[in-house]
Structure formats: structure tokens, C-alpha cells
């Protein structure tokens, strides 16, 4: 393969005008932007922060590769994307001697399968995938994934699913009693066939737009990430919105901070990592943005109602039942994608 052709979407470091030392450029999720924290960072360190936002891992990586990659010193990929980016050789190895407070991270997040020993990534938040529903319009509500299929007649074009192959296929696999990460072609086919029967209930596949539709009453239920669900519930106390983690198990995810090899300003990137690891800062993120923190010291600082919020910090038996989405063999992934295309195109 070497020697011939050119590499598609290669990311090269920018040499000219290489990062001003007092500027940090971030590329992060829509929901992570928290102006007070950014201002406090600038006051503490004198580093000015600019950021761009994305709403899916795929768009983040595509933008990174399509040429904007070398502009950022910090990115926020999720777990399985970290693994993919490590394999692509985009992420620089973090120098742990320059990082303070890593020991506050809970042990299970320090040695995750996607990045053992946090060599390339620092976990910043975690959560689950589940169902949010409007209890005023849907009663009784779901307890498990199977609810969707059992109530097809009530749900016609009244639900949305995440715009994500692995999450949607995984949840369906789970509802059939298989693993979220099944690699058995028979099981994957079975899951696809089950999803086809759910299609009349699906208004659209989306990861963000459901919020407004659920509030307006166009939807009664949506498959969502816990952080979004908890936040929407808190922001609309007058509405009877409920978040449910399906009984049979779901996926666990983490979002992380990484520094690309092409980072124009590694100094500022380390300053940001250290800042985000401060327990008080991590606690503020949980309090304002409703992301569960993997930082034990930050967790201890949280007010009791948040610590006891089971949507945010689910009990151990639910966690034991759940899986992390793990990268799978490209051949099997192609099978997933083929069924996804069949599902979304029909």
C-alpha cells in the first residue's frame, strides 16, 4: 500500500504562525460549553480560549480530517472514538508528569479498555443511553427496550432514535438478550429485522433535535444520552419528563479530553487538562451541565440531591448489566452499516 497514491484527509501540523502561547483552541460538544468556567480559566492562566462545537463524534473526526484538525489543541472525543483516533495515529501521548489530579479519577476510568492507563485521553464525564418520555402523554412509561415493540400502536411517528448505528443496533440486540457489541451475523440480522418492525414508530433518527419536539408534544419518547435527558428534565421542572435506564441493560459511555499530535499549543492544552481535573471545576460541570463526573474528589463535593440522582449516577446493578460500546472488526462493522443503510433508506 505504501508509495502509491496519496493519503485521504491527512492531518499535518501547521508550521507557520505556530500557536500564540496565550491562545487555546478547543473543539467540543455543544453541551460542554460553559462560559463562566472558560472565563475563570482565562483569569487564572491568562490564556484566551476559542472554541468550535460539534454534535457527533463522526462530524468531529470528519472536520478534524478535512483540514481543520491542526487548528485545535484540545478535542473531546467519546471512548470508542478515542480508540479509533489512537489507531489512526492522531493523538499525542500525554506526559503524566505534567498532569495533576489524575489520581482523583475513579479506578475503573483510569484503566478503560479503549485507552488503558489514560495514555492518550483523560475522562471528563460519563453517562448512560436510555429513554426519556413525557409521563403526561405516555402512561405507563417504559421500563425496558421491549416497551417500544409492545406499544407500537401508541407510538406511531412519536419517537426518535439516536442517529448512531452502534447505539440503535446495540439497544435492539440487547432487547433480544444479546450483547450490545454482538459480532454474530445471525444476531445482527435478527436485530435488523426487529428494527424494521419499529420503523413506523420512528419520526426521525436524531441526537439533538428531539429536545424541542418532545417539549412541544410532537414526540412522546426519545432514545437519548443521560446527560441530555437529566439537563432537559432539570430545565423544565413544570413538565413531567422522566428518564429511564432500560432494565435489560444499556450502553455506558465516557467523553474524554485528548490532545492531537498536531496541537498548535501543547502548553495551553496541559493547562486546560489540569484545570478540568480540579475537583471544584469538575463538580461545577456536573452541577451546571449534568454530566456524571468520573472524578471522586469532585463527586464528594456535589450536593446530596445530585449525588443521589439515579439517572445521573445509576445504581451498581444497572451498571453491572450495561456495556461499553467497543470497536469491532471492520468486516462486522460493515455488516452493521449495511443493515443501518437498509433501515434508514427503506
Amino acid at each position: 500500500m505504501s508509495g502509491c497514491g496519496w493519503t485521504l484527509a491527512e492531518v499535518r501540523p501547521v508550521q507557520a504562525g505556530k500557536g500564540k502561547s496565550d491562545e487555546l483552541s478547543l473543539y467540543t460538544w455543544t453541551n460542554y460549553v460553559d462560559p463562566p468556567l472558560v472565563e475563570a480559566f482565562t483569569t487564572q492562566t491568562g490564556i484566551r480560549v476559542t472554541y468550535d462545537i460539534f454534535n457527533s463524534n463522526e462530524i468531529m473526526l470528519a472536520t478534524f480530517q478535512a483540514g481543520k484538525g491542526s487548528a485545535y489543541s484540545i478535542l473531546y472525543p467519546s471512548d470508542y472514538k478515542v480508540e479509533e483516533m489512537i489507531e489512526l495515529g492522531f493523538l499525542s501521548e500525554l506526559d503524566h508528569t505534567r498532569i495533576d489530579g489524575l489520581s482523583n479519577i475513579l479506578p475503573q476510568f483510569q484503566n478503560s479498555a479503549y485507552d488503558p492507563g489514560n495514555r492518550h485521553s483523560i475522562p471528563i464525564s460519563w453517562g448512560t443511553t436510555g429513554l426519556i418520555y413525557d409521563a403526561d402523554r405516555l402512561n405507563p412509561g417504559p421500563e425496558d427496550w421491549s416497551f417500544l415493540w409492545e406499544n407500537l400502536d401508541k407510538l406511531e411517528r412519536r419517537i426518535t432514535l439516536l442517529d448512531d448505528v452502534r447505539e440503535v443496533m446495540g439497544a435492539t440486540l440487547r432487547s433480544l438478550g444479546h450483547s450490545y457489541n454482538s459480532t454474530n451475523p445471525q444476531q445482527i440480522k435478527q436485530a435488523y429485522e426487529r428494527l424494521v418492525t419499529l420503523k413506523p414508530a420512528v419520526a426521525s433518527f436524531n441526537t439533538d433535535a428531539w429536545k424541542e419536539q418532545l417539549l412541544a408534544g410532537d414526540l412522546v419518547l426519545a432514545m437519548v444520552y443521560s446527560a441530555d435527558a437529566v439537563r432537559l428534565t432539570k430545565d423544565n421542572p413544570d413538565r413531567n419528563l422522566k428518564y429511564v435506564i432500560p432494565k435489560s441493560g444499556t450502553s455506558l459511555w465516557s467523553d474524554t479530553i485528548v490532545m492531537p499530535k498536531t496541537a498548535p499549543n501543547p502548553e495551553a492544552a496541559y493547562a486546560w487538562i489540569n484545570y478540568m481535573l480540579q475537583p471544584s471545576v469538575a463538580a461545577q460541570i456536573t452541577q451546571r451541565q449534568y454530566f456524571a463526573t468520573p472524578n471522586q474528589a469532585a463527586y464528594d463535593q456535589l450536593p446530596a440531591p445530585l449525588r443521589n440522582n439515579t439517572s445521573l449516577f445509576p445504581p451498581d446493578e444497572i451498571l453491572a448489566n450495561s456495556e461499553r460500546i467497543s470497536p469491532i472488526d471492520p468486516k462486522i462493522l460493515a455488516l452493521y452499516e449495511r443493515y443501518w443503510t437498509l433501515l434508514t433508506s427503506s
Binding site: 500500500m1 505504501s2 502509491c4 497514491g5 496519496w6 493519503t7 485521504l8 484527509a9 491527512e10 473526526l61 470528519a62 480530517q65 478535512a66 489512526l88
Partner: peptide, 8 residues
């Protein structure tokens, strides 16, 4: 082809 691979 996916991003990061050689165009051939």
C-alpha cells in the same frame, strides 16, 4: 476508503 487511508 475511509479517512486516513491511502488513495489507490
Amino acid at each position: 476508503i475511509r479517512p486516513g487511508q491511502v488513495v489507490n
